[in-house]
Structures are given as structure tokens and as C-alpha cells.
Design a protein around this nucleic acid. Sequence first.
RNA 1: GCCGGAAUGGUGGAACUGGUAGACGCGCCGGACUCAAAAUCCGGUGCCAGUGAUGGCGUGAGGGUUCGAGUCCCUCUUCCGGCACCA
Length: 853
Amino acid sequence: MQESYEPRSIERDAQAFWNRAGSFRALEDASRPKYYCLSMFPYPSGKLHMGHVRNYTIGDVLTRYYRMRGRNVLQPMGWDAFGLPAENAAMANSVPPAKWTYDNIAYMKGQLKSLGFALDWEREIATCHPEYYKWNQWLFTRLFNKGLAYKKTGVVNWDPVDQTVLANEQVIDGRGWRTGALVEKREIPMYFLRITSYSEELLAALDAMDGWPEQVKLMQKNWIGRSEGVRFGFPYEMDGGRQILYVFTTRADTIMGVTFCAVAPEHPLALRAAQDNSAVATFISQCRAGGVTEAEIAVQEKQGVATGLSVTHPLSGEQVPVWVGNYVLMGYGDGAVMGVPAHDERDYAFALKYGLPIKCVIRHPAGDGVPAPWRAEYAEHGECIHSGRYDGLDYARATDAIAADLSARGLGGKQLQWRLRDWGISRQRYWGCPIPIIHCAHCGDVPVPDAQLPVVLPEDLVPDGSGNPLAKLASFTDCACPKCARPAKRETDTMDTFVDSSWYFARYCCPDNHRSMLDERAQYWMPVDQYIGGIEHAILHLLYSRFFTRALRDEHLLPGVSEPFANLLTQGMVLAESYYSDAGGRRTWINPADVEVARDSKGRILAAKTRDGMDAVYDGIGTMSKSKNNGVDPQALIEKYGADTARLFIIFASPPTSTLEWSDEGVEGSYRFLKRLWSYCARFDKAAPSVAAGSQKATRFEIHAVLRQANYDLQKHQFNTVASAAMKILNALERSSGGRTAVTEDGLSILLRLLSPITPHVCHHLWRELRFGEDVMRAAWPEPDPDALEQDEIEYVVQFNGKTRGSLRAARSADRDALEALLRASTLAQKHAADKIVKRIVIVPGRLINVVL
RNA sequence: GCCGGAAUGGUGGAACUGGUAGACGCGCCGGACUCAAAAUCCGGUGCCAGUGAUGGCGUGAGGGUUCGAGUCCCUCUUCCGGCACCA
């Protein structure tokens, strides 16, 4: 065989072999256990970045491993092809988003192929193809007819200069990214999907999802946010009628401590108060400034204004002033809260700021009063005090009694409350799936009939930043009402791209079916056995997909399937430093590769400059993203070292679930290993068979022990130590002076199979070259031989008072008495315990002896 | 702010259910080969003291449980992810 390792040619040859053999085509086969392995599909942003390489290598390792374990494997790939970056690129380069997207797909597909991933390309999909998004539209009309899709108003970021809606990402420090104008909140009509009708099920099912990380399930649980509490009303008179201000609380036991109520700025009562009170009107309009994200609202200073109105406490009958508070969210509960400053930190701060009374009604661990400053104990449960007939009751009994009394007055009672909100899917953007609705002046919102689907998105438009170009395109908007045939207008909003990605995993099963969304092949493959993707999708994408799978189930498209992903592996983010420059009044992000950095002795960044000497601002370390221009392109790595080295290096760098701060220092080590493997095999190929020498038993033990550990690590998905294991086996083989023996032959065959999922090209080649077989992919996965793992002697760690002082070899069969006798006779005992009293000897069988003095 | 994570040598990371901390790499130091360099190979490498055998210290910080803690418990710090229109 050839003397030197030449990745370029062997990778080309291996890929050609797989192509010819159709190695990665997946066919339904009821006789074999299936393994549907899916990595989250990429957004075609231009080039792959290291996060992609990591994600797809992890998936590829798993599929190649399970294929060798006898599973019928499906691993497809496609493109999350709609989205904002295409519109931004279109504006920057005057190219239609469609062209930009298709060009990117072509380039990135080439990159994926060059990495040798075992993908079934015949199932490729792109969400921007009408054949795909037709089914988004079709399903939407089903949900619309069922009432699971509906229209209401939602709040968006509004750029008053460009007269357009901005994504949260496009709002920087409260200003529009292009215009610099202060962003306002604005309410507009939009379509929502009723995910909340599945709240209970989405929450309850989490408990049985053993294949998901606890961490992700916990995040989803908190996100869905089921809380048991009391919803009740404060009656008031307004405009000559009796009205009720409803609030929800999980602390009904503190109801006698209410000293004010606060409503959201958008609350009807706030709007009514504003009519007569200019201070309220001014405050409400101030609240319109700023972004819409919960994070922004949560960190802003708590502010409020008195409405001058008051409501009646439902139990005490006292008058309670109503305030408008910028921290009250209209989207949660009734958009109003009761204010109990003594036992809620936020209310406490609010009351101190505005001089509202504070009334302590709970005996908490820190006493009967709530002197400033705020202490966490004030919010703890305790028995009621200063609460009239509820005095002395604990949390549960007070809540029951109060709920009962409210109920008797017809003013409320216990209620379940959810944090989860319905999913607003309307986007005022061009590059997305058109929402299939026709607005008719006579018939209202009419869903597009099946025969007219898909509503095709024209692909030749170029957005200019001033709103959706579809809205200006008469050939798109003008249509006939499907019901009454009179002239009507087509909806121009498009769908949130999360809709596209909420069911793509099912479409991979039958991408060629143009007659229905899903068919019986989805029954065969679904659910996905292993889903792999970034931890950043822990909530939204994964929750929406769980919701959609249930919606599909209930449309009889996926009978019996409720959960889309049986097992979930959340890979850690690949992080990189990011730098920007604000030169010229506009923020431009500079690729880290183009920045030169000065650091202090601890590695902290002192100054950064671009290659052409411009000052750059360090913006911390964070996820690789198109918008921050800090993606590291793997192409240079692949070209210099080959795909196998790139794959090995990213796998070896850290366990899949850890975040990884990108650095390609050390990539040489992976390349060196593959070269070393190659040259070992070349020597092995030439060596004459010989008989095993004496040391061979130890080599065999070592190799099989490493294999045992590697197989265990594979189950844990800890692939970095599997790569280590391969290195250890090669080290053992090289150390073994036995040449070509049964032991080294066995060891090498284990090594090539163990490594083949990670570096498939080189292993494919060596497997054939050394005549182990035709195709390593079809070889059986190696298992350790129990005989090889037998040991006659065990090394015991010896500790005195928990400090390790040495070790002791003992027969495998030695019992406690024998070990103690050995220990007493040892020099270790004489040295460390000579004239001391032994209080106790702790023996961990097979491992350790600890002498307590 | 709220929810979820993470922190181990100069560096990426390893350590089975609480049992020899630093596997396997990178870097660095020394050596071999070479006219020389690259590549390759061999040896060393947590920190401090000591010529040395050895001893002390050591897993973000501070407490605790235990014969024994990187691992379990409490408090804190810093960093990362998410927060519903980035994907």
C-alpha cells in the first residue's frame, strides 16, 4: 500500500464508493429495527460554520455506529430556507432572496458532501419550495377551520421612520438598526395558533420523556408555567355600570395585604382612565417606547402612575387605588395584578417608590413585620396575621378559605393559569410562506381552497427595508373571493419560519408525495429516534414541534405519534469572539480572523485592531452567528487537512453537550494521529505474520479494556473519549513489539471499526487495504472479549487517613483478611502506621484500602 | 430581571454509582535523525520546597457532610444559552 496519508484522494475514492453502492439510501424495511437520526437542518446562511460541522458530525457518528449495530438507518438533510437574513442580503446586494438562498444551498451542499456525511440526499427538502410550503398552507387552513388558528391583535416593534415592523434582533438599544429611530410598540392584527389548547398535554407528557435531558424538560416545564392560584375580581363603578377588575394570584393567602392594584398600560381600564387623566395618557404613551421583549421589560425601572380610580376589595370592602404599571404584562393572565407590597418584592419596591401603604399579613421566618430593606423571607409562606377571620391559617388553608369566600360572593375562585401564550405566526415580511387567507369585504377572512394551493410566493422581488414588497404587488394581492367570487385581497403576511421547522422531520419520510402531506412511510419512520441540535432550541423550536406533532396526530396524519423526538441530544454552542466597529456611524461586525488582539498576562483583551489598523471593539464571546460575522468557516480546515481530520478534531475537542470556545490550536494533533495510523498500517501490511510473544497478553488486555470503556462512552454519547480510546489503542499497538500477530491483528481491526464512525474515509480505505473486508460500514461492531479482560492480580490503592501513600498488588481472590495481612506485612504499613493505633480499615473491593489512624 | 447550564494544569479536556485528580491531545523543554530546516521518532512536563528519595499544596470562592469530595449539601462570584419577530 501507499506509504503516505493523502486525505484528498482517499476521501474522494471513499465518497465515490458510497455513491456507487447507494450506501446511505434509506428504504422502509419492516424486518429490521429502524433508526431515524436527525440533525437540525441548517439555515442556508452562505457557508457552514463550526457549529454545523459539530452538529452533523455527531449525527453522522451515531448513524454509522447504529448501522454497524444492524439498524435500518435514515439520516436526511434539508434547508430551513426562509428567513430574515435572506432579506438583509437582498437589500445589501440587490439580489432577490430566492437567488441568494439557492446559491447558498448549492455551496453548502457541496461542503456537506465533502465532509462525507452519510446522508440520504434523495430526501432533501427546502422549506422555500412550493411543494414543501404548500403543506404549511394546507395544514393552516385545517387548523383555521377548526378554530386552532385564529386572528387577534399582537404587539410588535414599529420603526416609525421606515414604517415597518422590526424583529427583536433589529432593535439595538431601543432603536431601529437601519434608521436609528426610537422604536415603538404597536398593536396589529395577526394570526395565532392555539398551542395553549395543548398546554396540559405538552406539560404532562414531559415526565415520560426519558430520552430527553432533564435540563431541557425543566426549561419547557417552566416555560409552559402551570400555576394553581385564584382568579378574582375587584368590583368598581364606571360610566354608570358595575364593572369588575380581574386579577390572578398564587398568593391568595396575602389578599388582606392588598394596598393597590396595578394594570398593564394596554389594559382597558388604563385606556379608560387616560381619557379623563392626561398624566395617565402621557404615561401610557411613554410605555409605548422601547422594545417588546420580556427581558427588556423585566430590567427596566418599575414605574407607574395612579389612575385616580379605585376598586373595591372583594373581602374587606375597602377602596383600593388602581395604578398603571409598566411591569405588568398584558399578555399574562388578565393584564392586572393585586399589589401586596409586604410579601412581593416587586410590589415592595413599587410601594416604597410611590409611598403606598405596606401591610404585613403573613408571619414569616423573619418576624411579624417587613422593615426595609426587602428580605427574601418576607415572601415565604407562613400563617396569616392581621387578616381578620383568616388569622392563624397556613398557606393552604387560607387559600382554600379565601377562594371559598370569593366564590360565595360570585367574585372568583381557584383557577389554573398558564404562562404559555398562543403562538403568533404572522410576519410582515416577504421571504416566507404566504398565509393562505383571502380578505373579502363581504365574507370576511376566507381560507384559500385546497384546489388553489399552494399560494405561490413570487421569487423575483427585492425588499427595500420599507415593509413587505408583496403588499405592493397587485398581481399577488388582487384575487377573487373563493366564497362569493367578488374582488378580494390576499393576505400578504407570511408565516413565522418556526412553522416550517415544526414538521420537516415528518416530511423527510415522504418528500415525494404530492398528493398528501404525510403518508404511511411517516408511520414507519416516526418518531425520530435521535434528534441532535443546539441547546439554544431547547424551548421554542422543540416545543412548537411537539405541538405540531400533536396537531398532525389529531388530523389523522400521524396516528398514534404524539412526540416527534424520542431521544434528544442538545449539543453545546460553538462560541467565538466577536468584534465590531462603529466607524461611519454604523455598526459593522468584523470577523475575528481579521482582528489582531493585544492581551494582558491573564489573557484578557486590552485592545483590538483590524488588519488595516482600524480600532475594533471586543463584544465578548458568544454564539457563532451570521449577524455578528464571527462564524468560522471549516473550508480552510478541510482543504488543508481533509474531512477526516476536521471531523476527528471537532469530536475530540470536547463532549458534544459542552459549549466549545472555538480554537483550532491542536488540529495538527488530530492530523498527526491519522498520519500515524496510516504509517502503522503501512508497516503492518508489509510485516510477516509471527507468533505472539510474552507481552502480548498485556497488550490484549489493554486494548479490550479500552474498547469496553469506549463502548460505554458511546452509549453516553461521549464521543471525545471514544477518539481518545482510538489513540490509546494505536499507542498500545505501537508499543507492542510483537509485529503482526493475532493480538495486533485483532487490535487493529478493533481500532479501525471503532474509529470508522468518526473518520470514515481513512478507515474505509485501510479496512480494504489490509483485507479485513469489503466495507467497514458493514462489519460488525467490536465487543470486548471477556477472556481478554481476566486478570490474576489487582492493584489496590493504599491510603492512610484518606491520603494516598502507595499501592499493593493482591490476588484477585484475596478476601478482607488476606488483604489486611498483606497490608500489615508491607513496607507501607511500617512506614506510615508503625507505632500508631489503627482505628479502622476501610476496604473497597477491587479498588482501595484506607487505614484510619 | 426570570428560567436553564458551566467553571479542573500554560491549553482542549479525562476521572465508572463518593475511592490513586490531570487519561488522551495541544503547547513547552530536552534528545535523535539532518549540512540545515520541515516532517518524523524518543524522553520529560500541575504548583511550591528539596541534589534526591520525599514532603506540602491543588478541581472558580467560602462553609459543611464523610474514613475519603472534582463528584453530595448550603452561600457566593464569573461566564454561556433562552426569554415568544435571529435561526
